Simulated assay, not measured.
Amino acid sequence: MARIPAPHPELDARAADRAAGVLLGAAVGDALGVPYEFKATLREDQRPMMIGGGLGPYEPGEYSDDTQMQVCIAQVAATGADLRDPEALDAIAANFQHWLGEGASDVGNQTSMILSIAARAPGSAGTAMREAAREYTARNARSAGNGSLMRTGIVALAHLGDPAAMAEAAIAVSALTHPDPDCADACVLWCSGIRTAVLDGTFDGVRAGLNFLPAERRGMWAERLDEAEAHPPRHFTNNGWVVHALQAAWSAITRTGAPELRPAEGSFPAQHLQLALEAAVRAGTDTDTVAAIAGALLGARWGSSAVPPEWQRAVTGWPSLKAADLVRLALLTARGGSDDIAG
């Protein structure tokens, strides 16, 4: 029996702008980090630029697999689907396979292996992928990569009206490739942060998301968030691991001050988005992923209007999407698949 999803909340203009910022924020963070992935860590006086290159190699402004995979989810979420349902998970899994077959760039090792195994397995796409992911995780002690957290922002938009459903969907979508408990928990926390940022315009949802974790894991994650707030992003050097990836992104967000409102001097609080993304790239190592993770939450808090115009003009990526296309996918998802601006 199909679930009856909670109604999508009506979004005023400011909340709609914040919803529109989720995919766009992830994409610009991704494209900003692409040139510096696994290269020498930038100094504090060095400003990252969208110059392309990286592991793709990518064109200037082009986003990587981090956003490409999130687009695969968004194409399903934008129809108004409940992302917990098997049919939706099958569709997402099929999109992943289509993306991989089209020559996806810079695919993570774990994701590539799971998708390849699932493609040869019987059963529906989602079932095959979840089973391949479970078997991989059972055989590998190091299976808690950042590959599901990097694509999770759109899941929050699909379930703005029901935080419990949001948490269930975050776990289900993560489990297609990354069922490790650390991955599931990280996706729940970040989706909670994005949902609250869109609806309320604060970052409070990340810590509020602790309530959706298993009781025995909440204290551990509270300490991890404390640690992130106490250290700069570059402290979390193993950010291919989902825990350090989340901590580096959260550190970049919480330790970067929002400028005071001084219009005469060209200073606005929403410039926090740009400054925090630059800090995320300076974390080093998996720069595009950390910045994509941070970008989804920063976009949810400050909105698409906070993304610098030059970044909006430059950003592009598979499958031939621009900033306006990413905004449209996000808004369709937040409105339950409806084009009606009134929600």
Score class of each variant (00 low, 15 high):
residue 216 E to R: 12
residue 2 A to R: 15
residue 159 H to Y: 11
residue 7 P to R: 15
residue 243 V to C: 05
residue 39 K to H: 12
residue 134 R to Q: 14
residue 75 Q to K: 15
residue 20 A to P: 06
residue 186 A to S: 15
residue 120 R to A: 14
residue 77 A to D: 10
residue 160 L to W: 10
residue 200 D to P: 02
residue 176 L to Q: 13
residue 339 D to C: 07
residue 182 D to S: 05
residue 180 D to V: 02
residue 331 L to M: 05
residue 19 A to N: 02
residue 17 D to F: 00
residue 261 L to N: 08
residue 62 E to N: 08
residue 129 M to L: 13
residue 93 A to C: 06
residue 75 Q to E: 15
residue 240 G to E: 03
residue 155 V to I: 14
residue 179 P to Y: 09
residue 321 L to N: 04
residue 92 I to M: 06
residue 120 R to P: 00
residue 53 G to Y: 10
residue 48 P to K: 13
residue 318 W to S: 03
residue 335 R to Q: 09
residue 149 L to N: 01
residue 273 L to W: 03
residue 223 E to K: 12
residue 158 A to N: 08
residue 110 Q to A: 10
residue 106 D to M: 12
residue 248 A to T: 04
residue 264 A to K: 13
residue 275 L to V: 00
residue 183 C to N: 03
residue 281 V to M: 12
residue 89 L to R: 15
residue 196 T to C: 12
residue 3 R to F: 06
residue 74 A to N: 07
residue 234 R to P: 01
residue 174 S to N: 04
residue 134 R to T: 11
residue 288 D to R: 04
residue 33 G to Y: 07
residue 192 S to C: 11
residue 88 A to Q: 06
residue 133 A to E: 09
residue 238 N to E: 14
residue 271 Q to L: 03
residue 71 V to K: 00
residue 329 L to M: 11
residue 11 L to N: 03
residue 14 R to S: 10
residue 268 F to S: 01
residue 83 L to N: 06
